[in-house]
Amino acid sequence: MNIGKQLKEGLLTQNPVLVQMLGLCSTMAITTSIMNGLGMGVSVLIILTAANVVISAIRKIVPDKIRIAMFIVVIAGFVTCVDLLLQAFFESIAASLGVFIPLIVVNCIILGRAESFSYKNGVGASFFDGIFQGLGYTLVLLAMCFIRELLGAGTLAGFRIIPEQFPIGILTLPVGGFLVLGFLIAAMQWALSKSKEGK
């Protein structure tokens, strides 16, 4: 178990969104305000960690042929918990995220980590994998939210930073989502290739 390596993979070299290109749908759809991004990121982080731990724990008794179905059942259970908790305690976030919380069930990051990591590794490693991959996802969401909310709407977490007539509204539209994500992916690839050259 190598926590430092896992941390680096989750945040940088194997970042779920910018390198593995997983979970792009939710990344594009909800990153219009910081609060949305934070809510979505933390929800995925919790679900991913919990699902990773449970799947890792039951990996030896689950027959290979039905493992995907098992993953989905476990993930769906946690998603339902988080969905209900959000509705109970953070009503505004639940309302603005809407259908994207139930859709975490089919978020590729969670299924992808279950298949490629926690099904093959121990409980402890899977726990940290969930946290670090979830953190990587959350940080990308926050970066996108920051750019899109600040430049597109002129606010940050609802507070007005740029006067109303200036913001470039197109960034809050889907077009802007694709653009900002493209720029982030390009920046990430550039940084990774730079660090490889350095070695």
């Binding site: 007539q165 470039i168 197109i170």
Partner: peptide
Amino acid sequence: AVLLASYA
């Protein structure tokens, strides 16, 4: 098109 979408 960008200006039209941003500053209709």
